[in-house]
Amino acid sequence: MITVDGLTKRYGQLTAVDEVSFTAEPGRVMGFLGPNGAGKSTSMRMMVGLSEPTSGTAHILGRRFGELPNPGREVGVLLDASAQHGGRTGREILSLAAGTMGLPKAWGDAALERVSLTPEEARRRVGNYSLGMRQRLGIAVALIGDPDVLILDEPANGLDPAGIRWMRDLLRGFANDGGTVLLSSHLLHEIEVIADDILVIGNGRIVARGTKEQLLTEGGTLARSADPAALAAALRAAGHASKQASSGALHTEADAGTVGQVALATGVALTELRAADSTGLEEMFLALTDDSQRDGLRDETDTKTEGTAA
């Protein structure tokens, strides 16, 4: 369990993290999604005591990170897989972590096996590792103490699609055993594959949050028809707001069944009718990554994603 309350970090004028609050529950994988520079890593550094928050608190399993007697046994942390001395072997890095936590030697082998690094690979110096191998080693270091919570910054970075699926299964298994997972990514696709719950952060603020299903289905319905204006009027009469996208399609919160009924009653022929799936999230995410649109999103701090499709 991770409880973050009003976490804020300012560097002079710049507010890197602005009143971030959330709870990551046991049994769930929470994805922290945002473009580069949105404040994901800064938030995570504050959670694990590497950076002092300007205000706000972060508690892991009910305690501040600095109060954990042997943090590696309770929280597995991977902030940057490349942040290792290239001259050490993979095994030595694991062994140092295990030694700090006071674990038996066999646990190191178990951790290597869990991340599919062979003993031969573990004997090599990390300077020769690919980014994917470093990620696996970093995950092994995070897992070695059998923690209850995982905090992983961009763990899927450098993994191929098979590696991403592997990580999904690994984290799914960890959560199913009652573990709490918080991982970050700047790629919507990775988060869609891996996470149960999604927090979207932009410019240091949380701009959307919810379960993956909520965020993906609350895109509403997309209806393309011969006469969008008539359909929009009929929908409005039925009590459903809609917006016309540039392509001529109508975007509405009403479900597909309702739209079909309304269209039939109005006599407008539908040419396409489908759930607007992740469009809303994707559009919002794209908007976040686009500097020019950043300011427009500043006020969208409500808890649900907005259909920002123009």
């Binding site: 600095g66 943090p71 902030l79 940057d80 942040a83 890095i93 936590m101």
Partner: peptide, 18 residues
Amino acid sequence: TSEWGQRTALTTFTLVPS
């Protein structure tokens, strides 16, 4: 300085916060 230069401080100080 090697802790900071090689950035192993990230691991060191998350295993031993003090």
